[in-house]
Amino acid sequence: MIDMELADYIARLSQLELEEGEKRAMTAELERIVAYMDVLNRLDTQGVEPMSHVFPVKNVLREDAAQPSWDRGELLAGSPGGDGEAFLAPKAVE
């Protein structure tokens, strides 16, 4: 199921790099894990609604009332290469 090509694809989506040797090992591990997940195929789920939230909690809403925003310095304090005004990243292409 999971081959090297698929491993490359999901690594790219995850923004992770896998070196050749590591990729081989990781692919094999994932393959084993995913093969095990197929246990689920034995479970009849015909007509079962997928359950995204365990409690029937609905409509949790807040009022549209503004609170003061945060001190910019605090929000930016941990940003690598930040200049105290904005978060900085290498040039985003497009």
Binding site: L40, L43, V48
Partner: peptide, 8 residues
């Protein structure tokens, strides 16, 4: 499928 198993 996992979300369905969760319901079960």
């Amino acid at each position: 499928k996992a979300l369905q198993a969760k319901a079960v």
